[in-house]
Amino acid sequence: MIRLLDPVAALGRVTLNLVSFLGELGLFTASAIVGLLRPPFYLRNFSRAFAEIGFFSLPVVAMTAIFTGMVLALQTYTGFSRFAAQSAIPSVVVLSLTRELGPVLAGLMVAGRVGSAMAAEIGTMRVTDQIDALSTLATDPIRYLVAPRLLAGVIALPLLVLVADILGVAGGFLVATSRFGFSAADYLHNTQQYLHTADVTSGLIKSAVFGFTIALMGCFFGYRSRGGAQGVGSATTSAVVAASILILALDYLLTQAFFTA
């Protein structure tokens, strides 16, 4: 009889763990947001995080955007030429990039690069007692470590995505003009004609949400890591996986909110 109830007990354990995890995440997020709104503000920590996310991620995001724009132009030409609709290449490239691919790909690249680094740094601070040391030196660790990173994520990722949008369009432009005989003026005219402000702003709002999510996951999993190097390693993996999945899920929800409401 007891064995028969084992699956029920296991289900109960999983449910309790999930509720506990979500509660912990909710409290952590609330503390971090309060830390953003109340002094002291740690501008030096914000600047460091901003440089890490915005400046040092620029090369990888730029490469991703250029190649994505180029591939998009190639694929669009291959598909649309069957219906003699090649002229749609500029609009497909610019709308795909600004609405979807710019924010999502930049978000995924930054999650891999910066989310993991945040989790590893804060996780190491946790397992070497540096976070406890902060508390003993009259400093709230969440306000000091987490709030500046969240703010940096929210501000830096949209700026990165803006650059990614421009470079992605440039990639498409390069392929369309060099391989498919588009004139530069026509390509730019078509791009401009079909692009609306809402396409860009929706992508930037998405990227701000993704920036917050990446920083939150990196900080949260790092902050709760336990048990030395192995704990830090698993926190890093969890941060990247959670941020990546959340980016894709939030992208769907935000797209639905912006374009089907």
Binding site: T124, M125, T128, D129, Q130, D132, A133, L134
Partner: peptide, 8 residues
């Protein structure tokens, strides 16, 4: 702290 816990 035991291992110093200096901020890296």
């Amino acid at each position: 702290f035991q291992n110093g816990a200096l901020f890296d």
